[in-house]
């Protein structure tokens, strides 16, 4: 930036805001750098705006598992330390502790899924991978997240996590409801993957709520059932 540029900074800024100036025009005719800056400013206006995801206000909820989880964690750590120091701990006590560790993981995962922050809820979903897939409460919590979470990223992660859970008739019905309610094509595709064995899949081709690109995906899946998921 040369001396002339520096002396014109205020007028150049006004020029960016749409205030015409013959002095600035004359300067731009001879200053390549300022001309490039003004051109970049115009280019910025053409940048597409980030799309805000579907969100709803989330106020802190009184329900919070964290103190319980932390206390249980401390107790378990003490218990494991105690048995770790003994040569022959009774096997039923060890089994009981393992069971408690599993339920502690479940509590932590459920607690994280209930958090206000989207990144914490994503952590909860990742944490759920360490919990036994036969746990119906966690499956229900993930299913609720897939149905109602305001963040598309969190809903997609929940759909992915639900793949390892066995599906009941009730959960499949719930998935069909999600297909009719969720307006994100990415989530619709993830749910279709969960319903891969469902004989009603062709019905989606006539469903008005399904995005055209998702219908193409359904057609591809029906034509080649092995090709599921994002390629």
């Amino acid at each position: 930036m040369n001396t002339e540029c520096s002396s014109l900074e205020l007028q150049l800024a006004d020029y960016l805001a749409g205030v015409p100036s013959a002095e600035v025009d004359a300067h731009l005719a001879v200053c390549e750098q300022c001309r490039a800056s003004v051109a970049l400013w115009s280019n910025m206006a053409a940048m597409p705006a980030p799309v805000a995801p579907r969100m709803r206000l989330q106020l802190p909820r009184p329900r919070n598992y964290w103190p319980l989880a932390l206390a249980a964690s401390a107790l378990l750590a003490a218990g494991l330390g105690f048995y770790g120091g003994r040569a022959s701990a009774p096997s039923n006590d060890i089994a009981s502790l393992r069971k408690e560790v599993r339920s502690l993981r479940e509590v932590v995962a459920l607690s994280l899924l209930d958090q206000q922050s989207a990144s914490e809820r994503l952590r909860g979903i990742r944490y759920s991978a360490s919990v036994d897939a036969s746990d119906p409460e966690l499956a229900e919590a993930l299913s609720h997240t897939l149905r109602a979470d305001p963040s598309v990223d969190v809903r997609l992660a929940a759909a992915d996590a639900l793949r390892r859970f066995p599906q009941s008739t009730k959960s499949r019905e719930s998935m069909w409801q999600i297909l009719n309610a969720d307006d994100s094509p990415l989530v619709q595709i993830a749910v279709i993957d969960l319903l891969s064995e469902d004989p009603r899949l062709p019905q989606l081709l006539n469903n008005g709520n399904i995005h055209p690109s998702v219908k193409e995906y359904v057609q591809a899946v029906l034509a080649n059932p092995q090709k599921r998921g994002f390629q």
Partner: peptide, 14 residues
Amino acid sequence: TVKVRVFRALGQLR
């Protein structure tokens, strides 16, 4: 001050 800083920031972005 805002005007000067905006134009300088634009130069850095460039």
